[in-house]
Design a protein around this nucleic acid. Sequence first.
DNA 1: CTTTCTTCCTGTAACGTTACAGATTTCCAT
DNA 2: ATGGAAATCTGTAACGTTACAGGAAGAAAG
Lengths: 347, 347
Amino acid sequence: MKTTGIATTGGPAQSGRPTLKTIAFMTGLGVTTVSRALKDAHDISIETKERVRLVAEQIGYHPNRAGIRLRTGKTNVISLILSLEEEIMGLTSHIVFGISEVLASTNYTLVVTPYSREKDPLLPVRYILDTASADGVILSSTEPDDPRVRLLTERNLPFATHGRTNMGIVHPYHDFDNETYGREAVGRLAGRHRKRLTLLEPPPRYTYHQHMRAGFLKGLAECGGEEVMLDSTDINSPLEQIHATTLRLLQSRNAPDGFVCGSSASALAVAAAVEAAGMKIGRDVDMVSKQPANLLRWFRPEIMTVNEDIHLAGRELAKAVLARIDGVPAEHLRSISMPDGRLIQSV
Amino acid sequence: MKTTGIATTGGPAQSGRPTLKTIAFMTGLGVTTVSRALKDAHDISIETKERVRLVAEQIGYHPNRAGIRLRTGKTNVISLILSLEEEIMGLTSHIVFGISEVLASTNYTLVVTPYSREKDPLLPVRYILDTASADGVILSSTEPDDPRVRLLTERNLPFATHGRTNMGIVHPYHDFDNETYGREAVGRLAGRHRKRLTLLEPPPRYTYHQHMRAGFLKGLAECGGEEVMLDSTDINSPLEQIHATTLRLLQSRNAPDGFVCGSSASALAVAAAVEAAGMKIGRDVDMVSKQPANLLRWFRPEIMTVNEDIHLAGRELAKAVLARIDGVPAEHLRSISMPDGRLIQSV
DNA sequence: CTTTCTTCCTGTAACGTTACAGATTTCCAT
DNA sequence: ATGGAAATCTGTAACGTTACAGGAAGAAAG
């Protein structure tokens, strides 16, 4: 017994947007058939599929996200969780653009979920879990023992981190090899006979703090250099503070003759301190710094630089979450980019 | 006749997340009542409302976005449309964080929709309209006659632009007063007896190009200065190019003695060119530049600076779209921030 | 004791989609 | 012929929410 529409007009009620029903009406098929035809199911004839696709194309059909989400639970959302206190020189832009670039060719959408560090960093993650508001998550500011990673793993929500952890959980990540960076930076300074070196390091809570420091120390060991400690200052400190403590250090009896900077912003302040102390980069001291974009060359070309491609990081992270969502095992989704630009996939 | 649930268990079927049905079951009320209680409708008793709210709170109820969106069409999404070719020094981060800050206290979500300039800038806008995927839109890179503004206005989707238009359409915007910036920049240079000035201007297609240029010319008129043109270069040109053309200009017979820079990145390249020409900022030439963060002071303190608070721009834009969504007329949602930091609401 | 409000609550249907459990037809092997 | 499989299509129900159109009970007014 057919209930073929008399009351059922076939068009969408109020919105004016075409729906499956519209196509069903136009083709004379059932809504289910149209739905299955559009997703290329095996039990629909080729001819029908093509007819449906044609009509859908013609009338500009776009599946209604809310309908899909309600029915299937799939959100088509990737959530980028950002610390509001992130850096100052545009890391964020680059990572956002990198992610976007990958998502553009999918039908995923990027939502940015920032949080302020005063609050619990778990909050945004918990919210996403509680409201099932994303299919995947990208985390930055990763810590060695990161509760967000634990929670997401437990609750089985696909995610990828910018930076590694060290908690026995295998998960997708992308990281810059800060250890090699630290080691090679020391090497370059040693090559210019600088052996009393100061490291401007990331805040200790982050994993890459340990990496960079380990590389730095390894480098020192290799060249027989010595660390000159910079107290109570890291690359997230206000630039004024970095400037002040560095200047004080340079004017003390055990002044360093080389700097390894963990961020380009800190390099600005250090360079200013060097000059305020009446010294000159390349003559009295040498500096190496990371940078997300090739900006330091315009600032002080004497500073030796290494480019960290954040745009690439964004792309890798996005690809990793998407792959994880598609069921690729986490162990295949770990990549590290080297200071020389090489990209290494972990096995 | 009551159909009170025997088969209806009251809990959510599969997901495990509490729904209105869960609360209805627990309180013994109807689903409709619970829905209306939670939105504080007038026809629900205070006592019931409180009971419902308590239970909802206790079990951690979050309304299902997809359900609401499907039923009401409301997405709770603000879409930020960004040109991928945006600037280099972190404008994007600041605007994103500014918007986020405002949205954080609402239940709106920020989705970032980038587009590459090769493609049609209308594409993302059209997509949002076609799929009704946002309640409001924020545009950047605004042009005097902006087709996106026209389309959004036509289709009646709330939006706000970063930058003004000039097409007889009243719409919400936030803008920096680049005219005053240009004028005062010239004034500061004239104060140091610089009268042969070069403007590093934004690409001509953007509205603020006209503003900045108008201010620049007005300033020149006021102090009797003269423009020295820099050909085929704007602040979006590669820094290498800015450097090269500026250097060439400085070495020509009609070299300028002052620069007004429309962006901090361009200031880097100009400063480098000045020095490559064997000149010194503050001695042979003077420079004024805008900056989104106080970074140039670390670079060349001799450069005179004006801070453009992009974070504020983000906040203003977010507030404007939200207000527009709430029905506030566009003419009340126009603000301009002045170089001295003052924020002016247009009437 | 009606009648008419007012207050508070309720079931039904619908938004657009897909999982599921059939139907119908055709075709082939027996 | 007959049974069965294969191919193709279909309606119903459900996801969670809200608009709508009531309905029951008590209070106030006649």
